[in-house]
Design a protein around this nucleic acid. Structure first.
Lengths: 122, 122
DNA sequence: ATTGGTGTACTAACATACACAGTACACATA
DNA sequence: TATGTGTACTGTGTATGTTAGTACACCAAT
């Protein structure tokens, strides 16, 4: 379900959050479906249950999961949430473009990056 | 010369590195000109000299400064270095665009960010 | 009611990173 | 010699991330 990258400098729980978020947003984890239990996912990833717990708590806080005590964690697919998430990314992009411009990267060069990654999407 | 942002979550020395880098790349700090001493810049920013030392060491490691013991730190303007830095940023941009695409942000939306920041540059 | 799986809360320990404080020393220059 | 420079080092404190272990409340199946 998830592969952790130990070369990544970010904390493990953050990686878990990001990857699960992506799976939820893309509908791979379907709305109202049950997530693996804290203990089982921890086992699967060979990390501590506390770390998964932290990730789940964060996902619940941000609205991607809801919890029923004694039963498990479940997926909350939320259209508005996805839009919000998109906005966050657009904001990030705006920021990095701004940074790049300040050290003299031209708009044309940036545009190249956009075109390179093209994949006939909409 | 520099203003620190204490709301920024990044470490202070990293902020110092980034801002000085920018000043060097943009030629505001001229090649071979002398940087403020570790102690004086620390005083100016009201932070510990060790923190400035760490920033200077990093800038020397990456080639933006050179040091003469007993005399001070001096600016190394290097054309190739700037290109390298630009490449780093383009790589960052590529990565974030990739991330955004994975959660369903369209190329068109990304393009908007590019246009918004337009400023008649080259 | 008991059992087993669930989420949750808590403490303790450890490692790392960041920042500060203070000291010391070698070097260059006036 | 005196001053200002970079550099190195030892502490200290704080915050964060991760693991370990324990405990408890809840739910469902038996």
């Amino acid at each position: 379900m998830i592969i952790l990258d130990y070369k990544d400098t970010r904390p493990l729980y953050e990686q878990v959050v990001d990857k699960l978020q992506k799976l939820i947003i893309n509908g791979i984890l379907e709305p109202d479906s049950r997530m693996p239990s804290v203990r089982s996912l921890a086992m699967e990833l060979s990390i501590n249950p506390n770390t998964i717990q932290k990730a789940y708590a964060e996902l619940e806080r941000t609205g991607f999961l809801y919890t029923i005590k004694g039963r498990g964690n479940f997926v909350t697919y939320n259209e508005e949430l996805c839009l919000l998430k998109k906005q966050e990314y657009l904001e990030k992009i705006r920021k990095i473009l701004q940074e790049a411009e300040e050290i003299g990267v031209s708009r044309a060069e940036m545009l190249e990056e956009l075109k390179e990654g093209e994949s006939g999407n909409d």
